[in-house]
Write a protein that binds this DNA or RNA. Structure first.
Lengths: 336, 336
DNA sequence: ATGAAAGCGCTAACAG
DNA sequence: CTGTTAGCGCTTTCAT
């Protein structure tokens, strides 16, 4: 059996209270006893049980992170950023891929609360705000990533999707493109809508009338982007540029264009969103709207931890600004 | 406050023992009381505290997963596979990216044991088998992924790296290549050595003498692969094909070749290892040695869970076989 | 079939 | 400065 605090106390000839105090650095302990106890702990290779101390009312130093799919590079990078910051704070993170399946999400939420996590970072698309609301009412610290609950006071870190879309749209418009297609995601989230809206506003500002037929639905897979783009290229008057709401879709678009024998970026300019590692790997390297992934993760953790520690009562919404990252997949329109 | 078992007991007019029994389906409870208690639990939205029950000696239904870097697609996919299988078993997983930093690894291990995880899946390169040995001696269930501790009896799931390397080597040899470079990782792991050795054996079997100068060191980044390949291409007699020990390196090699103005795959054939999503995205699509990532994750979890539940005393080593996935980055040697 | 009571390992008053 | 003691929420004999 693992040694307990009793074993240490006995071996050190002190009470368990004393041991507890040296473990936590609380109370007043003479230097001599402290050192002695420390030595005994070391000898016994004693490791305080965090489950016991959690039961006593202290926190579990554990948070949950829900996201759609860890295998999606964007979320993997988010998770990594969250994990790193958590580790610095001494927290561990439970990873929860929900595939945006409401059932799975509920199951995970309930598991997390049963395990008494100190807080939850939600990077999944919120479907049942019902459940989330309950959590918030129960004072479970929550931080939202890339998500917005307009009706609820909850810490949130997001990027300005509208601006991102706008940057993409202006970039393409400035390159002289007039027929700009948009590949959107299949979930109707605010984030997705804003990106589209931003892009369209940029187009309008440039005197381009958004064409409904150039608005196509993809999803979160390369394949879906490919299919959507293939359809778009079949139009009588196909687009010369496309803005995809995420990098995966953009990559699908590139692959579709290639398959149709188009030269990239000469025949089709592509702009993505996220700036994941994929954007640097695809050929041509993808022009994309960069989300400050590290920063998103860090800030979410910081908000959450502050709330867990009770250092902060005010909730806040942090809006990070995206950045246009120009690579080679976008080029001036060549009116041959 | 969250309701406790006492609240339920009181509201239901029974003892906490009874409630506990209906929660766990243990003991003998009349159908009537059971139903009644169930209803009360529901009304109170009672959720048993797993930290309390863990303290009582039951397991925590939590495992730890250590890996080098969650942002690396290969490990992200592994993590996803592990998580999925765990979820089916009702386990949660603590994610631990160590960057192969021994300090971080030790810190994570100790945190995990303090939190009394039921077991640990180790997908990091093992550096201090010291610490791991201690864990195993303390009967902490451990499963190794893609790792081998020749001196220890521990559950392990791995792929046959030698065979993978061999497949890569024969593939290139069969395509007529004679000058085959190898890009290895910078950590001297058995896995890495085996891949190289396999490739070289295949070359020898094809009558090719491995050339030391064509063996170059990369790492786990695209950049390192690029740099290594750039050097290789500067040789008087540069390679016509390259086998990279992971997809990241292979991608770096492709990028380097492109930058030097080479046509791919005509001027250089590239074979990677892992078959991550990146292999499908790079242009040309990467011929690579496919690891059955899903299966690796599943089996590791299964071994671990069996051991946790005490359903199994015998340890085992599962060797999964890799598979050559031919895409477009490899082509017959054209002796111009 | 149900309940009383003794822990699990630790923290936090409260005494001394 | 150190020890005693009462829980934290739950499981598990052992009685009844």
């Amino acid at each position: 059996m693992k040694p307990t605090i009793y074993d240490v106390a006995q071996a050190a000839g002190v009470s368990i209270a004393t041991v507890s105090k040296v473990i936590n650095g609380t109370g007043r302990i003479s230097d001599k006893t402290r050192k002695h106890v420390l030595i005994i702990m070391d000898q016994l290779k004693y490791q305080p049980s965090m489950v016991a101390s959690a039961l006593t009312g202290k926190s579990t130093f554990t948070i949950g992170l829900t996201l759609p799919d860890l295998a999606n590079p964007f979320f993997a990078e988010i998770a990594r950023a969250v994990e790193d910051r958590c580790h610095e704070f001494g927290f561990n993170v439970f990873i929860c891929s929900t595939d945006n399946d409401p059932d799975k999400e509920v199951k995970y939420f309930s598991l997390l609360t049963q395990k008494r996590v100190d807080g939850i970072i939600v990077a999944t698309r919120i479907q049942n705000d019902q459940f989330l609301k309950k959590l918030i009412q129960q004072n479970v610290p929550i931080a939202l990533i890339t998500n917005e609950m307009p009706t609820l006071a909850v810490d949130t870190v997001m990027v300005d999707d509208f601006l991102g879309g706008y940057q993409a749209g202006s970039h393409l418009a400035e390159l002289g493109h007039r027929r700009i297609a948009i590949l959107k995601e299949d979930t109707d989230t605010k984030s997705n809508r804003e990106r589209i809206h931003g892009c369209q506003q940029a187009m309008i500002a440039a005197g381009i009338e958004p064409d409904e037929r150039l608005l196509s639905i993809g999803g979160f897979t390369v394949q879906s982007g490919k299919e959507a783009m293939t359809e778009l290229l079949k139009l009588d008057n196909p687009p010369t540029a496309v803005f995809a709401c995420n990098d995966l879709l953009a990559i699908g678009a590139i692959q579709a264009a290639r398959e149709q024998g188009l030269q990239l970026p000469a025949d089709l300019s592509v702009v993505g969103f996220d700036n994941t590692i994929l954007a640097t790997i695809i050929d041509p390297p993808l022009t994309t709207i960069g989300q400050p992934i590290q920063e998103i993760g860090r800030q979410a953790v910081e908000l959450l931890v502050q709330e867990i520690k009770g250092e902060k009562t005010l909730k806040q919404r942090v809006v990070l600004l995206p950045e246009l990252v120009i690579r080679s997949s976008s080029l001036a329109y060549q009116n041959v």
